[in-house]
Write a protein that binds this DNA or RNA. Structure first.
Lengths: 242, 242
DNA sequence: GGAATCTTGTCTACGATGTAGACTTTACGC
DNA sequence: GCGTAAAGTCTACATCGTAGACAAGATTCC
């Protein structure tokens, strides 16, 4: 992708009309950063570039994020804020299903942020993560406990659920190519490159790979998981409703 | 972590005795890179540092990897080669379970590589990935098809299975802290930092979080998934054995 | 109003990184 | 032994994150 000159934030006026310096704020910085990542990928998010995007000196950013890593954390937090969970709805299974689909769509909306989503927590102990990152966890636990699960069981359910969910998102995004016309072509081209003796199955699956219904697959997986979880937890002392 | 001076590869002699320049090779470069990542993390793997580790000019590395990204791909490939799959064993369920545990152990052995494992495929279309990366996929497909699954179903099973597996690994590694003594302390410390009103459930789960049996949890999840998958595929034309 | 103080943005500068391109050295086939 | 190809090295450059001193602007208190 060639570097672009026009600013990402296609707001009212040109790039640096002298009067309109809109006073920085954490939200402004982070949302511009997110827009930049969405448009041009993670590598495009450099301090210099972001500064330029905001019409400010790169150094000014350090007033709103301690360093680049913190900036990335802020972006993940911002993205996760797009996810709304209602912990006091009645049907917990329906809730989990709904959240799964919401998160999937969120990931498809911000594919370039997904590496951050799955990677940043690996380098930050749980207690030190941005609060916005932990909120979904807390809310889902709340959801499950309110539904009648013992706290420890709720944690197990959460883990299985979120694990599967993240796994699915990674899976789906791997096979996701931006240009849908190019999709099949690139796929076949790529597959054709594979040595036929070593990868017969994979090559034969080309057509099947080409049309991938992520939503359906996710839904089916969630069904299996929920059924299995309730069944496997049925033999214990606490039983959730339904 | 402070930078260290002694070379990673604690081989026979000191750092740069003039006679012992062991002639580079792709394997040597990659395995040294892996050792470096294992010991000091991904950020420590710079061309200069790796060159120094090998007692060579950083530029020499470009004879064995086109650029840094290709080097990272090489490392992932190398790690994945540690995983051995036997596609012609009888019991496919037992096989999948075994592979799951193997992969989990692999991830625990190379936690710093896990971000690469889950992240690199996102930026490389399937057909253009390093072959070593695709081999497990091919082998598992083979395993399932030989077990009686229709190819398309095999793909679905694979996706659900690998999705869950990767999700679990990410989950477990998040809660994994290197120093087990520090574990609980750090955990409590971190949890204590959370605002009590907003995160009551999470805070209450501190003790449960502290002892996490990843293997058991993985096993249980796999059981659920396998049971669910076979059940949900039973109504279709092709049925796998058992 | 005016001065003191805190906040926000800017400037300059430094060390580290990936890697292009020209060069030198080594290994090997005949 | 000589010529050719491969392996390794050197120099150089653009770009990155960010420390630290400073300036501009806003806010508070009298």
């Amino acid at each position: 992708m060639p570097p672009r000159k026009t600013p990402i934030n296609s707001s009212t006026a040109g790039e640096k009309a002298p009067g309109e310096k809109p006073r920085l704020s954490r939200d402004l910085v982070l949302s511009t950063a997110l827009a930049l990542v969405d448009a041009e990928g993670l590598d495009a998010l450099t301090m210099r570039r972001l500064g330029q995007e905001l019409g400010r000196d790169p150094m000014s950013l350090y007033r709103y994020a301690a360093n680049r890593a913190a900036l990335l954390d802020g972006v993940t937090e911002l993205v996760l804020k797009e996810l709304s969970i209602f912990p006091d709805r009645p049907d917990w299974q329906a809730q989990l299903r709904q959240i799964a689909h919401d998160l999937r769509l969120l990931a498809l909306r911000h594919p370039n942020v997904v590496p951050l989503l799955v990677t940043r927590p690996l380098s930050t102990p749980l207690g030190l993560r941005p609060l916005g990152t932990l909120r979904p966890l807390e809310q889902i636990l709340s959801l499950l406990i309110d539904a009648g699960f013992a706290p420890a069981d709720a944690l197990h359910v959460y883990r299985a659920y979120y694990g599967f969910l993240y796994g699915h998102i990674l899976n789906e995004l791997q096979e996701f190519v931006v240009d849908p016309d190019e999709n099949e072509a690139l796929l076949r081209l790529g597959l054709h490159r594979l040595p036929a003796k070593e990868f017969p199955r994979l090559r034969a699956l080309g057509p099947v790979l080409a049309d991938y219904d992520g939503a359906a697959e996710l839904d089916q997986g969630i069904s299996i998981l929920l059924a299995g979880l309730t069944a496997s937890l049925a033999g214990e002392k606490t039983t959730p409703k339904a």
